[in-house]
Simulated scan of single mutants.
Amino acid sequence: MTTGQHIASRDRAARQLSVLSATYPGWEIQHNGDAPAEEAWKAVLLHPLTPMLAKVGVEQTITRPDAPSLASALQCQVALIHNERATHEITKFPGRR
């Protein structure tokens, strides 16, 4: 890889990191270009992982080889969290089971 390609790759990763961080504020997003390829991108949930969230498949830490696959995994995690919270909130209302 030439110096120019390396700089372009680093700039692209920085932009992807910025977009992921803005899109998923409940997660700490990290990029480590020196890590093994399968662990280059990492997201850590900023809120405590409750037993109920873990039961439905929410993970505290997610690692992926690239930004698009991390974004996909995070979207799935956000859906799981949203669905669990919505289900839990519905059961709190009087007259609902």
Rank of each mutant, 00 (worst) to 15 (best):
A37H: 10
L70S: 01
W27A: 08
A54E: 15
E39K: 15
T91K: 13
L45S: 08
L46R: 15
A22V: 00
V44Y: 00
T23H: 11
E28Q: 14
I81K: 10
G4Q: 06
T3M: 08
E59G: 02
L53T: 12
P48W: 13
H47V: 04
A43I: 12
L17S: 09
V56F: 10
G95D: 12
I62N: 02
L20A: 11
E38W: 10
A86P: 00
H31V: 13
T61A: 01
L49N: 06
I81L: 04
E38C: 02
Y24V: 04
K92L: 15
G57A: 01
A35F: 07
A43V: 13
I81H: 02
P68S: 07
S9D: 12
A35H: 03
H82A: 11
E59P: 00
L53E: 14
A43Y: 12
D34Y: 02
A14I: 01
E38S: 08
A13H: 11
A35S: 07
P25R: 02
E28I: 04
S9P: 00
I81W: 01
I90P: 00
L74W: 06
T91F: 02
P25Q: 04
R85C: 04
G57Y: 10
A71G: 12
D34M: 09
W41C: 02
T23M: 03
M52K: 14
P94A: 08
P68Q: 07
N83D: 15
P65V: 02
Q77R: 07
A13C: 12
V44L: 14
H6L: 13
L45I: 03
Q16C: 10
P48V: 07
Q16A: 14
E38V: 05
R10Q: 11
P48Q: 12
A73H: 02
H31F: 15
P94L: 10
H82Q: 10
L80V: 03
H31K: 14
L74R: 09
L74Q: 05
T2C: 05
S21C: 05
E59F: 06
E39A: 14
G95Y: 12
A13F: 01
L17Y: 11
H6F: 11
S72D: 07
T61Y: 02
A43M: 13
R15V: 07
I7Q: 14
T61M: 01
H82F: 06
L53Q: 15
E89N: 10
A71H: 07
R85D: 09
V56L: 10
Q60R: 15
A37N: 06
P51K: 15
A37L: 09
P48L: 05
A40Y: 00
T50W: 08
F93K: 15
F93D: 01
G95T: 13
P48F: 05
Q77K: 05
I81M: 02
R15P: 00
A86E: 04
A35D: 08
A22Q: 15
E89L: 11
P48M: 07
E28N: 07
R10C: 00
M52N: 12
A35G: 07
C76L: 12
A40D: 00
G57R: 12
T3H: 04
Q77T: 01
E89I: 09
T63W: 03
A79Y: 04
H6I: 09
G26P: 00
R64T: 02
P36I: 06
T87H: 14
W27T: 02
P68A: 08
S69A: 05
H88V: 03
